[in-house]
Write a protein that binds this DNA or RNA. Structure first.
Length: 141
DNA sequence: TTTCTCACA
DNA sequence: TGTGAGAA
């Protein structure tokens, strides 16, 4: 199938499908006219890519893990297991945990600043944010 | 319709 | 990570 067909079947834009190829996530063969020719299995492949991206995995890792999963009867992505797969996933798990720690530290610093700014108000996150939308888009009439 | 590339958020 | 535009 051509790129437009795959885009229609998966709901992923043609532009994004080309981007996935560029990142090594899809390997369509080429027709003599240069057009990409995708296999039926690429429909599931795109679903797997979306699922892994949603799990926070970077494309470089997804490229390695893509051959380590398959679909069960109900189109659920299940790992088949590859050497290094668990290591990769654990590493990503740790990276995300570190990122959460970093964000929590930022949040605490901002909470502290806001607490000072509000003069000791109990919960710095309870104060409504200032309304910056007035006089901007969407209000013409 | 599709390709590729550059620029950008 | 993902998009838009432009030229072929």
């Amino acid at each position: 199938m051509k790129i437009g067909d795959l885009a229609r079947e998966t709901g992923v834009s043609r532009r994004l499908l080309r981007y996935y190829e560029e990142q090594g996530l899809l390997r369509p063969r080429r027709l003599p006219n240069g057009y990409r020719e995708y296999a039926e299995a690429d429909v599931a492949g795109v679903r797997h890519i979306r699922a892994m991206l949603a799990a926070g995995l970077p494309t470089a890792v997804i490229a390695r893990l893509l051959d380590c999963v398959h679909d069960d009867d109900s189109e659920r992505m299940v790992p088949t297991g590859c050497p290094g797969m668990v290591t990769d996933l654990r590493h990503e798990q740790q990276r995300i945990a570190d990122e959460i720690d970093r964000l929590r530290t930022s949040q605490e610093a901002l909470d502290s600043l806001l607490t000072s700014a509000l003069g000791g108000n109990a919960d710095p996150r309870s104060e409504p944010a200032p309304n910056r939308s007035r006089g901007q888009i969407g209000l013409r009439s």
